[in-house]
Write a protein that binds this DNA or RNA. Structure first.
Length: 582
DNA sequence: CTTCCCAGCGCG
DNA sequence: AAAGCGCGCTGGGAAG
């Protein structure tokens, strides 16, 4: 059953559709849910409109429909706020973006139409950005889901878009299961959107007093607003003395650079690794200052005030925020929680954090993509790098790792660059695969992830550079082309790893829901970071959750690659506190 | 004053 | 030791 949910000038509107996106013959009329019209008496603290729509959706969910809507972010957070969890959806915006650019559907009307729209866009002034969504706590009233601005998409527009997307999907070329893969990607992307909203709703368990303890340890007591904490101030005084610069502000790279030069420290930048080259007595306190200053500005008391409420850190995840299919995030730097403060991430009483990460995901994905049986053999080892080191690198794990990472990132110089021929000799297929992606990118072609997410077309810069005439221009053109080559080289691996992770996450969510539906203790997904998930679970549910995580990883591999002899092991840690994982 | 970009560093 | 991919956030600093 397919239910389209759209914003209506007067509230919301729901229509049942066929799989192809036509109005359902048995039930063709859309149903309008007006604000304040569904008869539920307003509970204190809740607006009737909220209960109204939420109640209707909850009732319809019993028929286990697939909800089709423009953007999950417009509807689902408010539904969750109202206590309504849904099983599955189809996110038109996310799926449409994939279909508009995928090589698998490049020949379809949908892609051509999208292409035209993009060109039209170029003629128009830049689109006004959506205002940022209100903070989660303001969404609690669930006043106008999808109606924060005038509805830009009518029911018919959305229905037509869905039908067109299904048609494009149906027209995807059948060779090598491309259509099934793309369909899987759309399902995983939509599931991801729901998971993002659910994780945002749940939040990461965060103990404020533990965070404060950590800050006090590193920085001293909380300073008055706009002041440096004691330990930073002490380091600052020391620096001013050692560099003979009584008014130095070490937060200014320019000032700092001048002060260093005045003292004979000849660096070209103030980056850590370059500063480490020098043995001047000011370097050590300077590095300490930078480290602590980073903690204070990025994850200090101000951060804690802004982002942690009621023991939860609730960032917003941006599914589809990275071209490769990785997620981005907004607010609080959710994907950059530094190791220093992970001790503040702490399970609730009676609960555990289950932190699982896919070990060496990207090289394993490369092995599977390239079908490199020699490398697959080597990767049997739980430690892939050790296995590869054993064959081709005389057992030197460090070299094997650097070579493989270099191949995936496009290293040209340094030790990684020098190791490339050695890697190519033993593993020609794996190296050939990324080389091919690089050559394609340099030539302006598109590359595509395993499930069908394609790289963006060449940039304006790339196109312009193709017309270069002089030798100087040609050199620049080559450099731009190589840069694109490095991007596409990495795209196929990073993008396919993101495909895998999306399936892993969706499969895990399904299993956790099944556990809950069966009445067993279950856990809650609370964090996701490219190749790592965190489940917050009552102790009784830990074993079942671990099995779910492992089964989901295995399922993801099968979904992407079928029964191939490459393992995707996950390492699992059951901890009270995030800093004890890994 | 606001708006934008950069340098630097956090994460994978 | 410090190249080679993808992000977000901060403060400083230049531009408007």
């Amino acid at each position: 059953m397919y239910l389209l949910l759209a914003a209506h000038a007067d509230g919301a509107v729901i229509q049942e559709l066929t799989a192809a996106g036509l109005p359902s013959p048995g039930n063709p009329e859309p149903r309008i849910i007006r604000r304040n019209s569904t008869g539920e008496s307003s509970a204190p603290g809740k607006q009737p409109s909220a209960t109204g729509l939420a109640a209707v959706v909850r009732e319809l969910e019993k028929r286990r429909p697939r909800w089709i809507w423009h953007r999950t972010q417009d509807w689902y957070p408010a539904l969750l706020q109202a206590g309504v969890e849904l099983e599955r959806c189809y996110d038109l915006a996310l799926c449409g973006a994939i279909l508009a650019h995928s090589e698998f559907t490049a020949h379809t009307a949908y892609a051509e139409n999208a292409e035209k729209l993009t060109q039209d866009d170029d003629l128009q002034p830049p689109r006004v950005l959506q205002p940022p969504p209100p903070p989660a706590d303001q969404g609690a009233l669930f006043d106008d889901p999808g109606l924060r601005s005038e509805p830009r998409h009518t029911l018919d527009e959305l229905r037509t878009d869905y039908a067109a997307q299904q048609e494009a999907l149906g027209a995807a070329s059948a060779d090598g299961n491309r259509r099934q893969r793309l369909q899987l990607l759309l399902a995983a992307e939509s599931a991801g959107a729901m998971i993002a909203a659910e994780m945002q709703h749940a939040g990461v368990p965060w103990r404020e007093e533990l965070h404060e303890q950590i800050l006090a340890e590193y920085l001293g007591p909380r300073p008055p607003l706009g002041h440096r904490p004691a330990k930073l101030e002490a380091l600052n005084s020391e620096l001013r003395r050692l560099l003979n610069s009584p008014s130095l502000n070490p937060d200014s790279p320019q000032e700092l650079m001048r002060a260093l030069h005045r003292n004979g420290i000849e660096v070209k930048s103030t980056r850590q690794w370059e500063l480490k080259e020098s043995s001047h007595p000011a370097i050590e306190p300077l590095l300490a200052y930078k480290k602590l200053s980073r903690l204070h500005t990025a994850n200090g008391w101000a951060w804690l005030d802004a982002w942690v409420k009621n023991g939860r850190f609730q960032p917003e995840y941006v599914v589809g925020g990275v071209v490769s299919g990785r997620w981005a995030s907004r607010g609080g730097g959710a994907l950059q929680i530094p190791r220093q403060i992970r001790g503040a991430v702490h399970a609730d009483p009676g609960h555990k954090l289950i932190v699982a990460d896919a070990s060496q995901l990207e090289p394993r994905v490369l092995v599977a993509l390239a079908q490199d049986s020699t490398m697959a053999e080597a990767a049997r080892d739980q430690d892939l790098y050790a296995g590869i080191a054993a064959k081709g690198f005389g057992g030197d794990r460090g070299k094997a790792k650097m070579a493989l990472l270099g191949a995936m990132y496009g290293a040209t110089s340094g030790e990684a660059g020098r190791l490339m021929p050695q890697l190519a000799r033993t593993y020609p297929r794996a190296v050939g695969f990324v080389e091919r992606a690089a050559r394609d990118g340099e030539a302006g072609k598109t590359v595509t992830s395993r499930l069908g997410r394609s790289s963006p077309p060449p940039s304006e810069r790339w196109l312009l550079s193709q017309r270069s005439t002089s030798a100087e221009e040609q050199r620049r053109a080559d450099s731009i082309a190589r840069s694109r080559g490095r991007f596409t080289r990495n795209f196929v691996v990073q993008g396919s790893a993101a495909d895998w992770a999306a399936c892993w996450l969706a499969e895990l969510r399904r299993r956790l829901r099944t556990l809950r539906a069966d009445g067993s203790a279950s856990g809650e997904l609370v964090f996701f970071l490219h190749d790592e998930v965190m489940v917050h679970a009552p102790e009784a549910a830990v074993d079942a959750c671990i099995r779910a995580i492992e089964a989901a990883a295995n399922a993801a591999k099968e979904l992407l690659f079928g029964p191939i002899p490459v393992e995707f092991p996950v390492s699992v840690a059951v901890v009270d506190s995030y800093d004890h994982a890994k």
